[in-house]
Amino acid sequence: MEPILNVKNLTMNFGGLKALDDITLAVEKGQIAALIGPNGAGKTTFFNCITGIYEPTEGNVKITPPGKPTQKLQGLKTNLVTEKGLARTFQNIRLFEGMTVLENVMIGRHCRLKSGIIGAMLKPSSQKKEEKQAVVDSYEILEKIGLAQYVNEMAVNLPYGAQRRLEIARALATEPFLLLLDEPAAGMNPQETKELDDLIIWLRDNEDLSILLIEHDMKLVMSLSDNIHVVDYGRKIAEGTPEEIKSNPDVIKAYLGDESEDA
């Protein structure tokens, strides 16, 4: 079977700087894959290249959504990538501050709804029904993620951990088949991290999702991942199961300088 995300020879140049250098990476269906590497290794740039925020200099990105044919992804605008079924969260939380928690999730529903400007002004019954359904669907997602108690709060007023979870809820609302999480545990306390761990596994098992995550919390990465990809200075240096990665000499070397800072 084709991997659902298949990235070949991805290179990204900023001026003279090679942020990504010839990265090849695949995510299988139902997998939780992790992308790790020291700070500045190019992990977020990799996400930005896949999701169309940056246009990669070279290489190609293909997806095979479940039950659909393989298709090219590079060159598509960000919103179209999301429409195809890739949803992402952001390392530095980017919620819509002027909106409530529920509305943040409803924004995620946007690309699956149809009503246009005339519909919004005249509100025919089809439009009313769609709107009602969107509210119900969004609330259900909040319940799943465990944010139902905040439903009418403004997004900015949420505690930090809840804001990170809301990012995931918002991404889920776009009905993705592949979820890209950019440091979902950053800044969380051990309790919150544990809950996140459970949530990610629950999402894979119950929502039929595949997940690719960037994370610095090695305990979380090792316990969650089926497959780990390691990048350093924009190059991929290793790939394998958590056990293989732990004992890989290249990885240890890349992380050695980092060890003292992170501990």
Binding site: N79, T82, R94, L95, F96, E97, G98, T174
Partner: peptide, 16 residues
């Protein structure tokens, strides 16, 4: 409103 608050996140949510 989403566009006003954060253009990049807005696009990542599938909004043109």
């Amino acid at each position: 409103i989403a566009l006003r608050d954060d253009e990049i996140a807005c696009e990542a949510m599938g909004i043109d």
